[in-house]
Design a protein around this nucleic acid. Sequence first.
DNA 1: AAAAATATTTAGGTTAGTCTAAATTTAATT
DNA 2: AATTAAATTTAGACTAACCTAAATATTTTT
Lengths: 219, 219
Amino acid sequence: MFSVSEEDHLKAIFKIAEKEKKAVSTNSIAAYMNTAPASVTDMLKKLADKDLIQYQKYKGVTLSPSGSKVAIQLIRKHRLWEVFLVEKLKFSWEEVHEIAEQLEHIQSDDLVLRLEKYLEFPKFDPHGDPIPNMDGKFTLRSQWSVAELLPGHTGIILGVREHDKSFLLYLNDMKIKLGTSIKVLQKTTYDQSLRILIDGRFENLITKNVAHQLLVKKV
Amino acid sequence: MFSVSEEDHLKAIFKIAEKEKKAVSTNSIAAYMNTAPASVTDMLKKLADKDLIQYQKYKGVTLSPSGSKVAIQLIRKHRLWEVFLVEKLKFSWEEVHEIAEQLEHIQSDDLVLRLEKYLEFPKFDPHGDPIPNMDGKFTLRSQWSVAELLPGHTGIILGVREHDKSFLLYLNDMKIKLGTSIKVLQKTTYDQSLRILIDGRFENLITKNVAHQLLVKKV
DNA sequence: AAAAATATTTAGGTTAGTCTAAATTTAATT
DNA sequence: AATTAAATTTAGACTAACCTAAATATTTTT
């Protein structure tokens, strides 16, 4: 239906729009995709012709309903494949992104439905990101970052904001994964770094930024 | 490493060479791939430059050791994914080819190894074709076509030569699948069509050609 | 509000992978 | 062996997806 490059651009627009509310700029897409801005402009024209985006020269883009649908289906496929890779093939959470980037472009609606059923309809992927259902609906849940927890309070890791491989390896070293309990022992007033207790066993110091990347439910 | 089109051409050459012993012709590749012969010529030049084939103008091509390796690895991935689709996702054997054609191009050696392990090292795919191991070795076994069975003798279906969807659906209708027993009741001398008994329960008439496509072990 | 900086688009070019039509080589037939 | 037919290659062109450099629009700063 759509080319890999078209799909990738739509996904990039979706991801960027998720964070910043305004129209998505050409340069931000280029930065996200590691391509030249001029290449993005070319693609935006094509996507606009196909009514996948709203595009006005120099004014940035927003996804149309059909463009949004394509992006969400891609994200759905990506996350379902990540669950497969981790749950079934026993990959670690930092290894699956590149492979899922390829698998998400496999075209077969039936495949996605059967995969989802086989995985028993997971609602979140191995990084804690929600998996949209067939209709593009994401499951919502209340979650806080560890940075928001008050000293003395505990949370259970639901997910991570940062997906960088080195960050995930750092968490592995600290024995932090989905389901791990994090108790905030102390917050430094100087730089807001935190002393935490991991699974009631390991004490460690994390920066404010790291705390911001860790998403938990309060217990 | 290699593009999808390069891989597809190498696989086509391998498949054609499997049947016909001589050097593979440009036209046969074009026919197999549904492309113009001129496009094949272009690609052959490229593959020859990369030492993936032996190519002399007008003389046809043969795979080099490295080209052969690429082709066999593709076939390996294709067949492993087919096993996954049928065994785990419960696709029917006539539905999996197109999806596996896409999946075979996913690049990750680790993925293939883990998939193979997850599937418990299958040696044959859902059509009974052998799955080469990591080193490119195919498992051999003695097999005959039903056309070779003498009246009164029985075989167990090991695989099919023909992979066409309509043929597989025809077998479904006749309740023939891998493991099914086939007893030859009678051979017509006129056109060598056969009356067979399927799983000791259903009697049916098949043409000589159909019998030739059905591979069995003798019992 | 003008100048400077930044963002974006346009213009023109490249490569991979395809095509058709014409030219050439090889194979088959008379 | 010459002619015809078939197979193959060459020549030239197209599209998708990229690029760089230059031009233009927008935003920020003085």
